[in-house]
Design a protein around this nucleic acid. Structure first.
Length: 591
RNA sequence: GGCUCCUUAGCUCAACUGAAUAGAGCAUCUGACUACGGAUCAGAAGGUUGCAGGUUUGAAUCCUGCAGGAGUCACCA
């Protein structure tokens, strides 16, 4: 039982006894009392005036008096206009602290056999170029979301659909054949994904040059692009690929494997992973079958050129192409096929796609089509849509060559963490210093990207993110490390003993903040919001900071008070660690 | 043009299902110090929540219209 639910139940009972009106305790949500007023929790009484038929002040006072008399947890109250401010008995806060301290998994609900199974798809890279800043936001959101769902007692399958086929891959392959001189990751010392990305750029360079020349000969831009020998060659390669041409397939496999090795390294550094990886090359044919079946059901129709479409004008959308005239499939087709395979492989109750908001329309259509095709999961699939990440220097556009590479970014973050902490690390073993720099650099990145509402476009400022003050990851890590240090100096602390001291007002406030953690986790699970967790952790750390500066812990001579503060500190540290671990962040014990 | 999303302090962001004087951090200004971890603390200043209406005891939040920005609109994934 949380403090809030106890108060809510008591208020409901008070209203029932005083005014004979039954109110669902769940509808009563006490909120934290604002700092400038006395009290811990506040009830807004306006909704109950109809029942009381009295003024807001009179109603609040009556309920307050009832609570003081009948609810042991309530010590006193005061009324400001329609707001009933309740002060909870400090002895009660002490027991709350004791309960929290004794619960190793405070706020976290483990999954059991009857738990829902949620599949979270994220990352979804193309295999023709390395991951960039946009993928970083995607990966961090997807991973964090998975952790949050797990913490709410769901079974989670993390999945990744790799877009490993299509004209873009053929472009890289062709460039490698033409100008690669047999280059491999080993021979060049480059990460595989970067090597392939370079050839993709190489193709584009030559292609543009060809188009320019053709246009000089008087061709229009479209014609020039369509007639470019390089483009024709790439298309021919794609046809061979689809036909299963051995040479093309072998090269494709070799080059994709280079890329996967590169991706794995990036994922590992980022600290994200997957339970099951799907490849578009395995799923696109499935989708084709489903679409062809849809024609018989009258859901799709065939045009005279042979292409297959769905008419969604009845749902307020447009006509959507599903198979090209040459029978090859498009993005939507393979997503339908992938969905089918996934539901064959896992008993999925809920599907969440972490994909950028430029695909909002795509998922609207996908949901409709799956529903029409008779899949029960179609209608309530969730598109976890997120906005673009921009940098202070300007917008990130791949065509302008200002793409921020994920590996470079991670390296830069770790480097600046190391530089910023150089003197701190002076007396630390080199290996530990490197490990702390890694945690802090990545923590800065993760926290900054996750604290923002996902659906908004955001500005990532690396310099600000790695500041040790303010609403940043390193600030949380610093707060944690400092608590660990204090506990070490105190010679450790036992979380099983009840401190005898009764918490004062500030300590009570801090206990109250910690006690909020489970409901924050729950809310974050319901609304799919890593940002909620992030901002809670910051509030908690800030609150603790105040407390830390107001009281000497180690210098406190009263043994009981000292113990109370140590236990409270330890509980804050543990909660912070549990919170940020839902963001995929790590806490260094020293920094 | 149609549809979706966004607009809060100089900047970057908060505000759970409507609730008290809309909160933090950065930057700015004023103070404090040989430090339980100074990577510090205290304080000040900074707002007509894009604009205009509406609903409500009460609106940044819900509804309508308008303005500005982002994305998307059929054979790229």
């Amino acid at each position: 039982m949380t403090v809030e639910s106890i108060i809510a139940a008591a208020v409901a009972k008070a209203i029932s006894q005083l005014y004979g009106s039954e109110i669902d305790p769940a509808s009563i949500v006490p909120q934290a009392t604002r700092k400038e007023f006395e009290g811990n929790l506040t009830i807004v009484v306006f909704p109950y005036l109809k029942a009381s038929r009295k003024s807001p002040e009179a109603t609040a006072t009556e309920i307050g008096e009832w609570l003081v008399t009948n609810e042991p947890a309530v010590e006193k109250f005061n009324v400001v206009k329609g707001f009933l401010n309740i002060t909870v008995d400090p002895a009660f806060w002490r027991s709350v602290l004791h309960e929290i301290a004794a619960d190793q998994n405070f706020g976290i609900t483990a999954a059991n056999e009857n738990s829902d199974l949620v599949m979270v798809e994220y990352s979804s890279p193309n295999t023709n170029k390395p991951l960039h800043l946009g993928h970083v936001r995607n990966n961090l959101l997807g991973y964090s979301l998975s952790r949050i769902l797990q913490a709410n007692g769901h079974k989670v399958v993390k999945t990744n659909i790799v877009n490993d086929r299509g004209i873009h891959i053929c472009k890289s392959m062709l460039a490698w054949k033409k100008w690669g001189n047999g280059a491999t990751p080993e021979s060049t010392g480059k990460k595989g994904d970067h090597l392939i990305g370079d050839f993709y750029v190489e193709f584009d360079k030559h292609f543009k040059e060809e188009v320019r020349q053709l246009m000089e000969q008087g061709l229009s831009k479209e014609d020039a692009e369509a007639q470019s020998p390089l483009m024709l060659e790439a298309r021919e390669m794609l046809r061979k690929w689809e036909a299963g041409d051995e040479e093309v397939r072998n090269l494709w496999k070799t080059m994709n494997n280079w890329v996967y090795e590169g991706f794995d390294e990036t994922y590992k550094r980022l600290g994200v992973d997957f339970d099951k990886i799907y490849y578009e090359s395995d799923t696109y044919l499935e989708g084709k079958d489903l679409v062809l079946g849809g024609i018989e059901k009258g859901i799709m129709y065939r045009k005279e050129d042979g292409s297959v479409w769905a008419d969604l004008t009845g749902d307020g959308l447009d006509h959507k192409l599903l198979l090209r005239a040459d029978g090859t499939s498009v993005y939507m087709t393979q997503d339908i096929g992938t969905a089918k395979l996934r539901y064959q492989d896992f008993p999925i109750d809920k599907m969440i796609y972490v994909v950028g908001n430029e695909q909002n329309y795509h998922f609207q259509v996908l949901s409709l089509l799956l529903d029409k095709l008779g899949f029960k999961w179609g209608k309530d699939l969730t598109h976890f849509s997120y906005g673009m990440v921009e940098l202070p220097e300007g917008k990130m556009k791949s065509r302008e060559g200002t793409v921020v590479d994920a590996d470079d970014l991670i390296q830069q973050m770790v480097d600046s963490a190391r530089e910023a902490s150089a003197d701190r690390f002076a007396d630390m073993p080199a290996q530990e210093a490197a490990e702390v720099a890694r945690m802090v650099g990545l923590g800065a990145l993760k926290y900054f990207l996750l604290k923002v509402d996902p659906k908004k476009n955001m500005l990532f400022n690396p310099k600000e993110s790695i500041d040790f003050n303010g609403n940043t990851g390193p600030f949380l890590q610093y707060t944690y490390a400092r608590i660990q240090s204090v506990i070490r100096r105190a010679g450790g602390v036992s979380l099983n003993s009840t401190p005898d001291a009764v918490p004062n007002e500030k300590e009570s406030t801090l206990i109250q903040k910690v006690a909020d953690f489970p409901s924050v986790v729950k809310e974050a699970g319901k609304s799919y919001s890593p940002a909620l967790i992030a901002n809670y952790c910051y509030d908690l750390a800030k609150e603790y900071n105040q407390f830390y500066h107001d009281y000497s812990i180690l210098k406190e001579e009263d043994e009981n008070k000292r113990n109370l503060r140590l236990v409270l500190s330890a509980v804050v540290a543990r909660t912070l660690k549990a919170g940020v671990s839902l963001l995929g962040m790590e806490m260094p014990e020293r920094m």
